[in-house]
Each structure stands twice: as C-alpha cells, then as structure tokens.
Design a protein around this nucleic acid. Structure first.
Length: 662
RNA sequence: GCCUCCUUAGCUCAGUCGGUAGAGCGCUUCCAUGGUAAGGAAGAGGUCAACAGUUCAAUUCUGUUAGGAGGCUCCA
C-alpha cells in the first residue's frame, strides 16, 4: 500500500505509512517531539495522539509548552480528579470539569448532601497521585446519544447535558464536554468513564504537576435557581517548575494584597462595628487620599471642568425621574421615610448634576459644560460580593458629567480619552486596553442617528489615541455606547478602571435643553465618566500595583530622619525643619531606640528615604541617605538631597507651591 | 443570597483529645548612646467574635447571629 502524505504547519509535506497515528508521525519527525507531544490539531479539529491519519491531513502536533497543550493537560487532570472523587465517594455524581486559566475545576454532587472540606482535598489529591502512578490509558469511544444516556444512567447532570446537546440547545460552556451527533467517551478503567469531546493525554502517567486549590459552591449551569454543586479547583502545569512558579506568583500577589498592606502600613481599616463594605481611613491613608484628591481637582481645573457639590441623600422623586428606582432599586440602600417624602442615599451623582445643568437656561455657547465632583455614593452590594476596597458599599467617585451638543461630541470624546490616559499614566500605568460596548439588540433609547454618531466618535477617539480595543457588540447599556479602559499593573494583572459612557436617556427624562445658535431648543448629549472609578478601589489597585511602595509624591511619610545618638538630635530637627519648610512630609525618630531598630521600622513602613545623621553630618552639613530599594550614600550635602527630592516630585511638586495669579 | 473555610492580646499566630490560655512584634517603665534591617530587663494588656444549647464544667462540642477569606451568582 502506498504511503500517505500529510501537511505540516511549516507548509512541508511528509510521507508516512498508512494507518500512522499522530504519535507515530511525531516519532517519525523526532524523538524529542514524540516525547513532548500531547495531542494534535488535524484539519482544524483537536485529536488524540492515537488518532489515525489519512492522506492529505493537515497536522499540527500540540505540545505541553503551548496554550493548547496545557489545556489538554488540565482537562485530563480534571478527569483524574473526577475519577478520584467517584472512587472515594460511592454514589457521588459529576457534572462538568473544564480547563480554565492556570488549571481546571470539576463540579460534583455528593450523596446525602455531603460536602467537601479542606481535609478532603488532601485525600483526593493522594488518590489522584495513585491514578497518575497507575498510568491508566485514556481510551476513546463514540456512541449514539441513546447509548450515552444508558452509560450515564446514574449521573443526572451528564444526562441533562446529553439531552441538551442532542436537542441542539447546548451553549458554548459545554464545548469541552460534548458536541455533535455522536457522544464521545474516555474510559480510564473498567469502572471509570467520562463523557468528553477530548482530546486527552494518552495516559494518566503524562500528568502529575498539579495541586488542588480550593473547594467552592457553584450553581448547576451557573443559575441561582438550580441546585448548588460542590466545585473543586485545581492548578496544573506541564512541569514541576511551572507549577512552582505559579504557586510563587500566587504568593507574590498575596504579599501585595491591599487589605494586608493597608493594615501593615496603617492606611485604613474595615471595622466590623461600621458594617460590611465600609472603610475608615487612618491618617496615613488619609494623606495619600487627600493628595490624590488634590491632584484630581487640579487636573480637572486645568482641564476646563466646573465643580459641583451635591448631597448624599435625595428625595425618591429624583430617582423616579432618573429611572434609577426602576432599573437600579436592588443596588440602592433602603428608603427613609421623613417629612412628606421618601429619601434614599444616592447610588449615583448623575441626577444631581443634571439638576445643576437644569438650574438655568443653557446656551450652546456654554457647551460643553463639564461638571466635576468627588461624589460619595452608597450602593447595596450583596454581602458575599464585598472585597476589601475593590468592592465596597460606600465610595467616592471622581465623577464628571459633560453636556455637549452633537457638533462638539467628536472633539470632546477625543480630548476626554486623552485626559483619561494622562491621569492613568501619571500613576505609572502604561499598558492599556479598551473595550467598546455598542448598542444592545433588545431595547435601547435614542435614535439610530445618535447611536451611530456617538459610536463613531468613540471609535475615532480610540483610534486617535492609538489605543488597542475590542468591540463588545451589543454589550452597551440601553441608554448609550461606552468605552471601558483596562490597565495592566506591575505584575501583569488587568483592572478595569475608567469608563466613558454616553447617555441618551437622562437628557430625555429630565427634558434637558439648550438654545442653539439659530434660537431653537435642542437636547444635549450627556457623557458620564470616571477616571479612577472609585477613589477607594483605585487606591486598592495602587497599593497592589506599587506593592505598598508609593512613589515619593504619594508616600504618606516621604523622609524618615534618624539622628545617630542623643547628641545629634538638634541637627536632626534642623534637617526636619528644612525639609518641612520645603513642603516634604517627614518624621523624626527620637534616638531612644537603637539605630538598627529605627532603620528597620522605617524600612518596613516602606518610607522612600531614610536619613541617618551623625557627627560627620552635623559638622559638614550633610546627610546619610538610605533610599528605598537602593544603596546607602554617605556625606550627601543637604542641598543636593533637597534638589533630588524636588526632581523626583516631577510635576506633582506644583501642588505644594503657590501658582502665580493674575 | 448560596457553598467551603476562618474569627484566641493593638498586630501576626500557637494551644487546650471539655477543667477559663501562650509566643513574637507593638505599648509602658528602667538600663543600654548605638553610622545603616530586631540591644537587655521588667510590666500592663484576653468575657478565647456574640448569643443560646448539651455538660458537674464550654474558648474547645452543637446551633443561631455577626464579621472575614476563597468561590458561585450579581454588578441598570
């Protein structure tokens, strides 16, 4: 029989004997590849290593160092998890177990309402190691749906999947489980078989660099009304080194956790007496916050914004008109009955800014009218969703509402996006991605023309700013399109911070107008935008981004001055006075504790500069400089050190000196 | 709201197979005067998250509540 030819990804063709499997092809190409091979993509479809090739196949061999290969490893590890659980808990049933970022999970339901606890994870993991050591093959078979239902007779969730798939109702969530007319299964032993599209590693011996991480509840099909299953999360990698690195990354992230650092650096706290999701800012956190607020106000002043102040409570009528009581009541704090009205803590600032706009007749000459406020709002977030500063019930937005005519929309949005990026850059973020959310299919307010105009302007702004973006087609709110800006932090995590949202609904609801140049009454477009989002959350992100090492301008204490001994105390306070007069935040540590102890204390507080001053310094008017993360420098003239501080402040130094008027 | 886990001194954590508790840091006082990451000693500090139940006895076991962590769901 003649050889068959298969195409490789580099465009070359290779002849192999008929009946050759993917594994055989890999071995034919090289021993290294044979060893690294996990699965293959044949003519666009994922296949196992023992899949037989036919003439003309386009073959790409997948190895564990690729994302696809890791996916297969993780998926196979999930099967091993399921096998272990089903062996350890007779009568247990299983649902789905897909690979996810960094690992996998599997959902189970245990008999008699049993649940997993943390100790169970160790038992399960030990059982999984046994299965890996046994090097069981993953044997594929394909059967029609009717037979599949019999095979999974004891597993109602699997049967549910089969029924949904065979009726064509399956969604993408199940794409790793089943697809198509026939249902495929992978059998590892006489007793363990799992329904699965595959592909899988050839045998469990290929696995092993995994760790079970946690147990959690998860609703069947992600639906609150469905039964809650027991989900086990694990992480899995191609090598033990990768696994170790992943666990180290988790540790690094844990070290930066803003809740931990906020406590260690005495920035703020969440006393239980206050209630969940509410923070108090301690003096050191409050200084940083004030600096952020001052910086924000200065930038808005320079950027042509007018300021507004609005109260924390409003009569319910306002939120009736704005529509928040219709659409957002679940997110609002409960009402207070008083006088002859019902009052609510405000969940948004926008209705109040609308009232500012409407307080007088507006002319086109006033547009764009930009109203800015550090506005504190209260939202009822469900108890289980609260998370430090990241998800909180009372918070302050750097909120602005811009009222603009259609002619001015394009310029305003372009300027606005630059303004956003400038602010983010000033906090050391430089890796941005954006998401454009467009008109939803179901229902929306506003004409086709206005939607098109606003969306086009947003696209133009993104392109002018050369910001990479993806489009969430139909993902916008019913009242207008928006741009979300994500930033990547110092350890590569992505945070959604800024939002620019067009709103065609509120101007309508509040009947907003301006007088156009031809004397006619027109309706403005309203833009909502927040740069930092909430100050609280932004500060949380900053703490993690900087790992608590705030840049000089933002550090609660910028310089710690340590006189070596009692006799240097007066020189120490001389330095303190000079730095303070120059506008820097300093602390002078009395020499009652040993020098080493005082240095350690300042270092653990992550203070940017520790100055040690002794006899040499007093006579020569110098300081010893111990910079955060740098080498000790001796005999630095005080003037030089001051100049260095001022340089490092950059354009933030402006806030401490009075700007000329006139 | 749901699932799992957690709550012991100001902080970080031990511990008690049921007989009301310890360490380090921090704080106070005394000694030590030290040139770049923890000097020494003494002292104060706890209704073992709260409430209820079982028990001769509960910080420990059980239940409820509150708060926290990780998930799920939610985030107009």
């Amino acid at each position: 029989m003649a050889d068959i030819a298969v195409q490789l990804p580099d465009g070359s063709s290779r002849s192999v004997a008929p009946g050759t499997t993917v594994a055989g092809l890999a071995a034919d190409i090289g021993a290294g590849l044979a060893k690294a091979a996990i699965s293959a993509v044949v003519d666009g479809g994922e296949r196992d290593l023992n899949h037989q090739l036919v003439d003309g196949d386009q073959v790409e061999i997948v190895t564990a160092d690729s994302e696809a290969g890791l996916h297969v490893l993780r998926h196979s590890t999930a099967h091993v998890l399921a096998q272990a659980v089903l062996e350890l808990w007779p009568g247990a049933t299983f649902a789905i177990g897909p690979p996810i970022e960094n690992g996998f999970y599997y959902d189970f339901s245990l008999p008699d309402g049993q649940t997993f606890n943390d100790d169970d994870l160790e038992r399960i993991e030990a059982k999984m190691r046994d299965i890996v050591d046994a090097d069981q093959p993953f044997v594929r078979s394909e059967v029609p749906a009717s037979e599949a239902l019999q095979l999974m007779a004891d597993h109602p969730y699997k049967r549910d999947i089969i029924e949904r798939v065979s009726s064509g109702a399956a969604d993408s969530e199940l794409s790793t489980e089943v697809s198509g007319e026939v249902i495929s299964f992978y059998r590892n032993t006489e007793s363990f078989v799992d329904m699965c599209v595959g592909p899988h590693v050839p045998s469990t011996g290929r696995l092993g660099h995994f760790k079970l991480m946690s147990v959690a509840g998860a609703y069947w099909r992600g639906d609150e009304k469905q039964p809650m299953l027991q989900r086990i999360y694990g992480t899995a990698w191609a090598t033990s080194k990768q696994l170790k690195q992943h666990l180290q990354r988790l540790q690094e992230a844990a070290k930066r956790d803003h809740r931990k650092l906020a406590n260690e650096l005495d920035l703020l706290s969440f006393p239980s007496e206050l209630g969940g999701g509410l923070a108090i800012w301690h003096p050191k956190g409050a200084i940083a916050r004030k600096l952020m607020e001052d910086d924000s106000r200065r930038r808005h002043e320079d950027g042509g914004y007018s300021f507004a102040y609005t109260p924390h409570l409003a009569n319910g009528n306002l939120f009736e008109t704005s529509g928040h009581l219709d659409f957002y009541a679940d997110g609002m704090y409960p009402p207070m009955e008083m006088d002859n009205g019902t009052y609510y803590p405000k969940p948004m600032n926008c209705p109040m800014h609308v009232l500012v706009y409407r307080s007088q007749q507006r002319s086109y000459r006033e547009l764009p009218l930009r109203l800015f406020e550090l506005g504190t709002v209260y939202r009822y977030e469900r108890a289980g969703t609260l998370h430090g500063l990241m998800r909180i019930r009372g918070f302050t937005q750097d909120d602005a509402h811009i009222f603009v005519d259609q002619e001015g929309l394009a310029d305003e949005l372009a300027d606005l996006l630059n303004f956003v990026l400038d602010v983010l850059r000033s906090y050391g973020f430089d890796d941005f991605t954006a998401k454009l959310s467009t008109r939803p299919a179901e229902k929306s307010v506003g004409s086709d023309e206005i939607w098109k105009l606003a969306t086009d302007c947003l696209v133009a702004a993104l392109e002018t700013a050369e910001l990479p973006y993806e489009v969430d087609e139909g993902g916008g709110a019913f009242y207008g399109p928006k741009i979300d800006v994500d930033v990547r932090d110092a350890i590569g995590r992505s945070w959604q911070l800024s939002t620019i949202q067009a709103d065609f609904a509120l101007p309508e609801r509040f009947d907003l107008e301006y007088v156009a140049s031809d004397g006619s009454r027109k309706r403005p477009v309203m833009l909502h935008r927040a740069l930092m989002g909430s100050l609280e959350r932004f500060f949380g992100v900053l703490i993690e981004h900087y790992a608590g090492n705030f840049p000089l301008w933002l550090a609660p204490v910028q310089v710690e001055i340590l006189p070596v001994a009692e006799e240097h105390a007066s020189y120490g306070s001389e330095i303190f006075d000079r730095l303070k007069a120059a506008g820097f935040r300093c602390e002078l540590a009395e020499p009652s504790d040993p020098l080493g102890k005082r240095i350690r204390r300042a270092k653990t507080q992550k203070i940017p500069y520790v100055l040690v001053v002794g006899s040499d310094d007093a006579s020569a008017k110098t300081v010893g400089v111990n910079p955060r993360g740098g080498e000790v420098e001796r005999d630095v003239p005080v003037d030089d050190f001051l100049a260095r501080l001022e340089r490092e402040m950059g354009d933030r130094a402006v806030s401490s000196s009075s700007s000329p008027t006139g």
